[in-house]
Nucleic acid binder design. Sequence first.
DNA 1: AAGTGGTCTAGACCACTCT
DNA 2: GAGTGGTCTAGACCACTTG
Lengths: 245, 245
Amino acid sequence: MNSSLRLVTAEPGLSRYASLAQALRARVVAGEWPPGSALPAESQLASEHGVALGTMRRALELLVEQGYIERIHGKGTFVRQGLTGATMLRFFRFDSGTGEVPVSRILQRSRVSAPAAVSRTLGIGAGEPVLRLHRLRLMGGQPRLFEELWLPLDLFAPLAEDDLTEWDDLLYPMFARRVQVHVHRALDDIGFAQLSATQARHLGLPAGHPCAQVQRSAFDRTGRCVEVRTTRGDAHAFHYTVTIT
Amino acid sequence: MNSSLRLVTAEPGLSRYASLAQALRARVVAGEWPPGSALPAESQLASEHGVALGTMRRALELLVEQGYIERIHGKGTFVRQGLTGATMLRFFRFDSGTGEVPVSRILQRSRVSAPAAVSRTLGIGAGEPVLRLHRLRLMGGQPRLFEELWLPLDLFAPLAEDDLTEWDDLLYPMFARRVQVHVHRALDDIGFAQLSATQARHLGLPAGHPCAQVQRSAFDRTGRCVEVRTTRGDAHAFHYTVTIT
DNA sequence: AAGTGGTCTAGACCACTCT
DNA sequence: GAGTGGTCTAGACCACTTG
């Protein structure tokens, strides 16, 4: 129980609380405190680093802003779990707007070597093995979204040959549970296109039908890209709201 | 020079800094410090209200988050000007992607009584008079965006019959300068649709061509809706990026 | 040099959660 | 009641901007 001081060497041009935040973030990312677990109390962290309480609070506030931790009054400070999921629905409005989670059906799963564009986004070597999925999402029995996913095999190998009935409707909680991949941030690029014959068939729409197209890159806490996905759905069901300030 | 104390009665269930922020926001909204002007120094505000410096700083931080003021190290605290403009371009990518401001051409201006949907969004009585505009925006000589705008006449009367050559390419700075309407927040709802024959003609595209459609409501500092606008452009030029955390 | 906001300290006290 | 985070104080000192 040696309570040795952890002094943070002041980075040039960085305030002390910013340096502290950097150091703490590194320990979170390294897994010293796993997702969902509690950090030491702010008072303990402060004395451990030889700074005033207010300074440590500023550092922790930064990590909250950056999405690494969350604080609960009276309980403690916790490492955030990954994103919960169902987020694609934020872009589409189908008639049954009851907030229900779409049912997911895996149409195809194969081990392939990554196409150039995919390996570049995933940040892996050209032609490295990836898991490719075709996935249909249904609401009220109707097929609504068609997805293509690419997952780097080194992280997702256990999911390459299991029973497909073990796949959940929501992927991110499943990724966390079964392969310890926690999606921390996602970047969605929205565009417009027309459905290919194959895509259209799966969605029960005519080929060439206008579709909204969401290209997602998802990242874990270390900043590594762990998923590339393209989602397509009827353009007429698309809507999204942005607030500008 | 009476330095009387301005005590803020603590609202039940509100922290002192939150109450202070509320009180200061009311004075900003009321125009006690006009847009672009400086607030008193934080030290003066603190002693004026009989609170510690740190408490006043927390209050001012809140107003920064909410977009009412901005602080510049070494200079002071200033009431924010309205949004600058050119923001529609965030949704489209045309070949000449040089960040140039699109040239604006007013095609039509008329005084009409507000349609039901418009008067509802503007929060004015049914059939109240509004200024309706059709506006084309061009980049590199090519027509790219077609806009319909509705402005409540009580605020924009001076713009109802002036020389149209006095209209700028960017509306919001002009609104601030000529009718003292400062747009503080805007809400954009994105969807996909097809161009009507008239819309298509203005954009040099075939009728029924797919288009991205942005429906904007713009608000001033008091929270009043001061503009309703629909912007349409070629769906293939549309793109938008969202980060999820 | 004077005035501004930004950082940091070392406390006290309050509000919430759990047992 | 013990432990947590949230608020508030009354200072000191630093960094930036302007005359």
